[in-house]
Every structure is written in structure tokens, then in C-alpha cells.
């Protein structure tokens, strides 16, 4: 079983590594977008999928990261990729300050507050808060990132940056999922009262989930800013949050492969429907309803955890 998984992993990695060589730059760029949204989806998955917190304002954390990168890069000329930790830190700090007073709110109340935060952030960016965000035009002229002396320009070069970042993300989030922390989040999602009764500090863990998700979204914001070289408030609207949210739920909340598949569908399908022109989003909306009706748990839901008993205790010898 483990061998089979390893082989599948090697093959997938191989395909992903050579894929852009066979595609034109347009489709490589589509893949890049899928990658960015997949990582954003994975970061939201910590909050929505694992902890069960109803966050419809994830784009605000993404925005804080992207604007941190843009402002520090254009004002102080710090190389953009060096700013990745700073972007994560600023988004995480923002999440901590915002989520701290509202973390105890019940599901749907939390939902509207996160939407509200997203709107406030967007309006603040449009109104050129502190004279730093450039108003509704946004910030342009962000430097191209530089990796080991090579400047990344083409979609294909970015593809490998995003792929590498995605691989690190998947690896770390998988570790997180199987850690004590991840199990605590799942417990909290399934039954908050029972989790509290077992000594899990629910407010603390919820806040931690929010901050971890936000930190990651902030770092993705950095890569997004570097890729686009122009960012403006319209990239961080409520609908952006909706797309990330849909990726998580449609793909299968709590499941890493599910979220990635969700990103492929949500970002990729509208590209395939390009021929439909204006009716594209109409079909997309109908597809969202249809997919939820036919796969209510999402396409690849989180599988229940399995624990194998230690060898000798298999056949009913062990007590408990």
C-alpha cells in the first residue's frame, strides 16, 4: 500500500515537473493560477475544513500579504521573495488582532463578520489608507522575483516557483493534519463541547487555526504580487473569498487532494467554458449547485483516520 502511494507520488511529481514544457504560455499561466488558488484553498482548509470555522473573508489575509510585499518592495526596494516571511507575519498579526475579539462568535455570526472584515479591508485599500495603498488603482511596478541570480519573468519560470511552494505547503500541512494540533482542530469541529471537556482550549485553538491559515494566505499574497507586478483592491473582493471557500467545500473540506482537485475545477473549468463567453459564469453557478447536490460531502472528502493496532494485539489479545 505504501509502495503504491510512493509510486503514484513519484509519477505525479514527474508529470507536474515536465507538464509546462508541452503547453503554451497561456495554459501554463492557467496552471499557475490553479496553483495559487490551490495553496490559498489549503490555507483556508485549516480554518474551514479542519476547524469548522465559517470564514468567508479569506481574501483579506491574502490582501494584507500582497500589499505588504508591494509596499515594502516598491518603497524600500527589498527583494520581493525575501519578504515572504514578513508577508506571512503581517497577515498572521492582522488575523490575530481581528479574530481575537470575535473568535467566540457562533458559526453564521462569524461568517458575516469575516465578510465584513473583507469589505472593510477592501474599502480601506480603495480609500488609500495611510497614503500607502495607492487607492483604487493599486500599486504597480513590483519587482520580478530573483531566485539564485535568475529573474523570474515567464509563466513557466513562475510555474516552478509555485510548484515548489505548493510542495512545501502540502508537506507541512500533511504533517499538521496528523499532529496533535491537527487532531485537536478536528475534535473541535466535530464536537466543541466534548473537545472543551477533554481539556482543549477551544478559543486558543480556533485562534491558532485562523492565524496559521492567514500566515499562509499572506505568503501566497507575496507570490501573487510578484507574479502580477500590479495589485489592486479589486483582486481581493468578497467574490475572491467565495472562490477560495468554494474550492475547499467543493473539493472536499479537510482533504488535501480534495482541495487541490477543487482548485483545478473551480479555476480550470471556467477556462474550458471560454467559448460560452457571457454564459460562462451562468454555467459555472449551475455546476456549483449540481456538484453539491450530487456530491454533498465534496468530491474527495476527508477520510476517517485509521489507526492500526500494534502487531501482536490484533486478534483480540489486547484488552481495552
Amino acid at each position: 500500500m505504501i509502495q503504491y502511494k510512493t509510486i503514484a507520488l513519484i509519477i505525479t511529481t514527474g508529470i507536474l515537473a515536465v507538464l509546462p514544457q508541452f503547453l503554451n504560455p497561456y495554459w501554463v499561466d492557467v496552471l499557475n493560477n490553479i496553483g495559487i488558488y490551490a495553496i490559498l484553498g489549503l490555507s483556508l482548509n485549516i480554518i474551514v475544513g479542519h476547524t469548522g470555522l465559517f470564514n468567508l473573508g479569506h481574501a483579506s489575509f491574502f490582501a494584507v500579504g500582497a500589499y505588504t510585499a508591494a509596499i515594502l518592495n516598491t518603497q524600500y526596494e527589498i527583494p520581493v521573495l525575501w519578504l515572504i516571511p514578513v508577508c506571512g507575519l503581517s497577515a498572521g498579526l492582522f488575523a490575530l488582532i481581528v479574530a481575537r475579539p470575535i473568535i467566540h462568535l457562533r458559526g453564521d455570526y462569524l461568517c458575516i463578520v469575516t465578510i465584513g472584515v473583507n469589505e472593510i479591508v477592501r474599502i480601506a485599500l480603495i480609500n488609500n489608507v495611510f497614503g500607502l495603498t495607492g487607492g483604487s488603482n493599486g500599486i504597480f511596478g513590483i519587482d520580478r522575483p530573483n531566485v539564485f541570480g535568475m529573474t523570474l519573468r515567464t509563466p513557466m519560470e513562475f510555474y516552478y516557483l509555485i510548484l515548489a511552494f505548493g510542495a512545501v505547503t502540502i508537506f507541512l500541512f500533511r504533517q499538521l493534519e496528523y499532529s496533535r494540533f491537527g487532531r485537536a482542530l478536528n475534535y473541535l469541529r466535530e464536537d466543541e463541547t466534548a473537545a472543551q471537556g477533554s481539556g482543549i482550549n477551544t478559543a486558543h485553538y480556533k485562534l491558532a487555526a485562523f492565524v496559521v491559515g492567514a500566515v499562509w494566505a499572506g505568503m501566497v499574497g507575496n507570490i501573487y504580487a510578484a507574479k502580477m507586478t500590479i495589485i489592486s483592491p479589486e483582486s481581493f473582493t468578497f467574490w475572491e473569498s467565495v472562490i477560495i471557500f468554494v474550492i475547499v467545500i467543493l473539493g472536499g473540506s479537510g482533504s488535501i487532494p480534495g482541495v487541490i482537485l477543487g482548485a483545478v475545477l473551480v479555476v480550470g473549468l471556467p477556462e474550458l467554458f471560454r467559448d460560452l463567453a457571457n454564459a460562462r459564469m451562468l454555467v459555472f453557478g449551475a455546476a456549483m449547485v449540481g456538484m453539491m447536490i450530487f456530491r454533498t460531502q465534496g468530491l474527495l472528502p476527508q477520510r476517517p483516520r485509521k489507526y492500526t493496532l500494534p502487531q501482536g494485539r490484533r486478534n483480540g489479545e489486547g484488552g481495552e
Binding site: 474551514v48 465559517f54 458559526g107 467565495v242 471557500f245 468554494v246 467545500i249 467543493l250 473540506s253 457571457n278 454564459a279 459564469m281 451562468l282 459555472f284 453557478g285 449551475a286 455546476a287 456549483m288 449547485v289 453539491m292 447536490i293 454533498t296 460531502q297 465534496g298
Partner: peptide, 26 residues
């Protein structure tokens, strides 16, 4: 979606919203 997880129904609602909005636009 009555018996399904609540967030799935929310996604369905968002999909219906996108569908109706674009129908009106068309």
C-alpha cells in the same frame, strides 16, 4: 441538500446566486 452538511448548502446557495445574477445579466 436538506440532510447534507450545512456548508455544502451554502455553496449551493452561492452557486444559485451566481447563476441568477448572470441570468439577469444575459
Amino acid at each position: 441538500l436538506r440532510q447534507s452538511p450545512r456548508l455544502s448548502a451554502v455553496v449551493s446557495a452561492l452557486g444559485a446566486s451566481i447563476f441568477l445574477q448572470n441570468t439577469i445579466m444575459l
